[in-house]
Write a protein that binds this DNA or RNA. Sequence first.
DNA 1: CTAGTTGACTGGCCCGACCAGTCTAGTCGC
DNA 2: GCGACTAGACTGGTCGGGCCAGTCAACTAG
Lengths: 253, 253
Amino acid sequence: MFEPVRSVRAYERVVEQIEEAILSGRIKPHDRLPAERELMVTFDVGRTTIREALRVLQSKGLVRSRSGDPNGPEVLPHSIDRLRESMSALARLEHLTLRELLQFRIVVESQAYRLAALLGTDEQIEALETAMAAMEAAIEEGEDAFARADLAFHECVALAAGNKLFGVSTTVLGSVVGELMRSKITAAADRRQQMRESCRRHRQVLAAVRERDGDGAASLARHSVYDYYAEYMVVEDRHAVSVLVEDEGTVAT
Amino acid sequence: MFEPVRSVRAYERVVEQIEEAILSGRIKPHDRLPAERELMVTFDVGRTTIREALRVLQSKGLVRSRSGDPNGPEVLPHSIDRLRESMSALARLEHLTLRELLQFRIVVESQAYRLAALLGTDEQIEALETAMAAMEAAIEEGEDAFARADLAFHECVALAAGNKLFGVSTTVLGSVVGELMRSKITAAADRRQQMRESCRRHRQVLAAVRERDGDGAASLARHSVYDYYAEYMVVEDRHAVSVLVEDEGTVAT
DNA sequence: CTAGTTGACTGGCCCGACCAGTCTAGTCGC
DNA sequence: GCGACTAGACTGGTCGGGCCAGTCAACTAG
């Protein structure tokens, strides 16, 4: 007849209210929350409680507190950092292998290209061309710049595909793969050469996209990822990945 | 010459240390952390700081504090809840549409089946059969039981595919889609009928998997998701999804 | 009009206290 | 001897007060 009432901590209810206000858009990024001593009056709780709530919101990437700022805690612009962190934690805890990450990445990335090729507007594909050029230019500016340009390119792909999820996934997966690779990096081979090779691959895929050849772009993208990482996997993992690489209907070595 | 030192809050360093201990596996699930008053001695900080650190770790889903528990805060078993939450938050903030979620889900799910069909062991596929039966039995036990059985089935698929990521994604996507659908639910149609229909679809896909027909299973899975949700989308969204549904090489209406 | 100072705020952190929940050891009744 | 009960020693949850360092803005001296 009656429902059991699980005791809810005070700070949790504070979190709930503020979080809802942010997620619903009632409070927008760059807005400021009232100061802690003010919040503790409006919520009628101690400062400890307010602070714990703010810590939680901060760890969720929703707000940021700066010591001494008279404007109060700042509501942060949306970011996928939290998603990246939880994905990264999951990867460590579940001991995700490079094979698993690449299988997933191949699936997601190739279909993003396919969607972009089939549904992207001419302007969006033109933007891809620009991003591609920026990427090639970034080779000279070092690895970080290149990584950023690469990210921007994939963001454009997701835009052309008309699906933000593909962009987010690519970013997150790239980050996690990066973390995993750092441990098994091959003594910093010729990165310059790798970047150029990467650009060549991207060019090929982009060409297929331009021709509105969705399947071709997807296939090229699959091979691109596979070839890039194949050397870091043992034979049986390579096979498990290559199953996804070849076009449907044919299974490779 | 010298690096700028951004001041790191005390509680953050506490979080770092404990988090690293957990993520690295040095502290295992169901282990207990020392009590707050004890931690505050070992870290040489006030209880406030310890509590803020614990709140953060709690919001990360790594530990749980129960009032009065003499054993201290508990290290939680791994869970994808945090990933689900951040994904859910992202979906709200970025206003992800049903179309976007389904496009992604179709891509991921179909390839999971494909991998399962091509690489799953006979035992794993047998387990799929068992899970399928449990799902059919669960129809009689209500929606919640059915949802659980459905989840378990997809977990088996990911297992057969040999990739935990596909299972995680399916779970997370399912949850987010569920949240989105709650708002546009069609007056609780005949859920019983829908469940039966869902089982029928799953059976078809499973049959293809049994025959090791990866492409067939993938194709059936794509259609299955599409058909299930098509009515909830406007025409142009339907088209953007159907592009992914048809086998490569052919594009549908 | 600018450069520097000052003061009123901010959040970060600590302390001590109190309450309510939880487990356990010991007690009481059988 | 054994089970039910109780009391106590913990636990975390919350509060208030206090101090410090950082930040910003208004004000002041040049």
